[in-house]
Write a protein that binds this DNA or RNA. Structure first.
Lengths: 144, 144
DNA sequence: ACGCCACGTTGTACTATACAACTAGTTCAC
DNA sequence: GTGAACTAGTTGTATAGTACAACGTGGCGT
């Protein structure tokens, strides 16, 4: 095995280990908003509202999955639907004031946890790590 | 927001994006062995056998979860149990020949996919990326 | 106007997971 | 040596997240 193989092996193992744990960790830290709901709600907030179909496309989720996730978020009062007046099939989804508030709290607390984990990293390393992740994810998206 | 904040934000987003997709991607590529079964089987192979309890501890899974995963792997003929003669509560788990074979195939194919994704990276970058991931995961383990 | 497409919901099924209650073996204190 | 406390693993039950297929409804092109 070359050194290159070793590195690839490690990346594979560590990414896998991370993936296995992420959901559970997120659930433990934020019982009020799962990793998925958080991601969807954050996207709505970021995009200033969008359609369920857009969420599904963006996150490679089935539309039925998104539909149920949104239904749950609506039931919690975190999301509201606005029927598009120009096309009555379309619902534009927006965070409610309460949803935005909860999102802000969870975001702050997640950010804090990440900062703790990365506290003793040099800025230069953080920078490189961030760009490697972006590059890696882009490649995964491109190659399936 | 400082540059440091930016980097942390990016790392957070990209790690989250990755986590969301990993399971589905793994399932699509290897329907015969889910991400979890793969991980457990690989650990057995690596450790030359171990107990269910060890798997649970190592992967932060409930023992019931491991019990069912192992039951499934046994049903597929990929794992066998050997009762510890010194302690009849204990089952030492081992991959079967067939299990080892399937594991080898999946490992090879996963490795290939990772190599493709990382094909155009310089060795130096791979090396750094690998060590960043190890460092990150260790920190997460330490801090919950 | 008819047929097709787009958006979303609902029925169904499956996987991964946790927690609690349980069985069965082991060890230790006395 | 016997009973209490512990450990390993299984099973019952519940929940979340997900996909696929069938469906209803609304809009659009010819």
């Amino acid at each position: 095995m070359t050194h290159r193989d070793d590195s690839v092996e490690t990346i594979q193992q560590e990414m896998t280990a991370f993936a296995r744990r992420a959901r559970a960790t997120a659930a433990r830290m934020h019982p009020e908003l799962s990793l998925v709901s958080y991601t969807l709600l954050a996207h709505l907030d970021d995009q200033q509202g969008c359609r369920a179909t857009d969420l599904a496309a963006h996150y490679y989720l089935d539309k039925s999955t998104v539909s149920r996730q949104i239904a749950a978020l609506e039931k919690l009062g975190f999301v509201e639907r606005r029927i598009d007046p120009d096309d009555h099939r379309v619902q534009v989804l927006h965070p409610t004031a309460e949803g935005a508030q909860v999102l802000a709290n969870v975001t702050a607390s997640r950010r804090k946890a990440f900062h703790e984990r990365l506290a003793d990293w040099r800025e230069e390393d953080l920078d490189r790590f961030a760009s490697y992740l972006v590059r890696y994810n882009a490649a995964q998206e491109r190659l399936g």
